[in-house]
């Protein structure tokens, strides 16, 4: 009890918790859940965009997209490492993902149907993600906070490259503009869902805030994202797919319709358009890589043996 009290005082003073520090089991579990989910999201997120690497329309676009997706893989690695400091291995995290025990952001369960989707993902999905990540730089767990710092620095070009694609499409031929609008129509709502359900006062979310793992509420972050994104859509000359969207002079915020929570729940429960495809891809690649990892392990063991004999 004394320990818990000191722990809270430490957190309230905006100090960072480090891997070997004492922490409540629940704090550890909460962080493992959140960080591994975040890591899986980065990795699974490589797939929808990866779909278009081989169809990127210029060499420049291909290079940018490759570098962007490569960054996401790197983010996955930073986050897996951060979670590992809490005493879970990467193998265990991957096993949990494959068993459906660990989640990833449901936004990656939507398909990418045209090239403008690549723009929309960078602009909206990375835009929403970075809104959340900027706030998480101040999270109380040291390794997580440092991973966020590094990630946010790298994210700076992701949103811009997406917006650049949107701009080219929106200002291009009528067909291109149509693709841009279509992409916005399909990605707008899933992006808003990325912030999660409305703030509730469940024990988990209260603890998350109390322990400063989460630094802003879902609705707060969602509103922040909407307020900065709507003018960007206007600049593109595209229409946000929400008839109720309007500026509220009094509050200084945009008002929107409510999210289709039925769809949200369905996708989370695994019934989204691409859930199975994404998981199958990951499982297949992991299984196909097993012989390579085994070979590398055997080779390393052999090297060690030779070193000992010498």
């Amino acid at each position: 009890m004394e320990k818990l009290h000191d722990f809270q005082r430490f957190i309230d003073a905006e100090e960072k918790i480090e891997p070997k520090d004492w922490m409540p089991d629940e704090y550890r579990a909460h962080n493992i859940r959140q960080i591994s989910q975040h890591a899986h999201s980065e990795v699974i997120g490589m797939q929808p965009e990866g779909n278009w690497i081989t169809r990127a329309p210029t060499l420049r676009a291909k290079k940018i997209l490759l570098a962007k997706i490569q960054d996401e893989g790197g983010h996955g690695l930073y986050l897996y490492s951060a979670a590992e400091t809490l005493g879970i291995s990467r193998d265990e995290m991957i096993a949990q993902l494959h068993a459906g025990k660990a989640k990833y952001s449901s936004v990656f369960n939507y398909p990418t149907l045209n090239w403008a989707d690549i723009g929309a993902i960078g602009w909206l999905v990375d835009g929403a993600a970075v809104t959340n990540q900027l706030s998480l730089r101040r999270t109380s767990y040291g390794p997580y906070s440092r991973a966020m710092l590094r990630i946010c620095n790298e994210e700076s070009f992701h949103q811009r490259q997406g917006y650049e694609i949107m701009l080219k499409m929106a200002k291009g031929t009528p067909e291109q503009k149509e693709m841009a609008q279509d992409a916005l129509n399909r990605w707008w709502w899933p992006s808003l869902m990325m912030f999660g359900p409305h703030d509730n006062h469940s024990e988990r979310s209260t603890k998350g805030m109390l322990w400063k793992i989460k630094r802003a509420s879902n609705d707060e972050l969602r509103q922040r994202f909407i307020d900065k994104t709507v003018p960007q859509a206007e600049f593109l000359g595209l229409t946000i797919p929400d008839p109720k969207l309007r500026w509220n002079e009094a509050t200084g915020h945009y008002e929107t319709s409510d999210i289709n929570w039925e769809e949200f729940n369905q996708v989370i429960q695994g019934n989204g358009p691409c859930n199975k495809e994404r998981m199958d891809h990951h499982k297949q690649v992991h299984a196909e890589g097993a012989w390579v990892r085994e070979a590398a392990a055997a080779y390393a063991a052999r090297q060690k043996e030779q070193l000992q004999e010498a």
Partner: peptide
């Protein structure tokens, strides 16, 4: 580039990219 997201481990994925 076709190997992106298909590496035997994530580190190697990044190397191939």
């Amino acid at each position: 580039s076709e190997m992106c997201s298909r590496g035997p481990m994530l580190e190697e994925d990044i190397a191939l990219t």
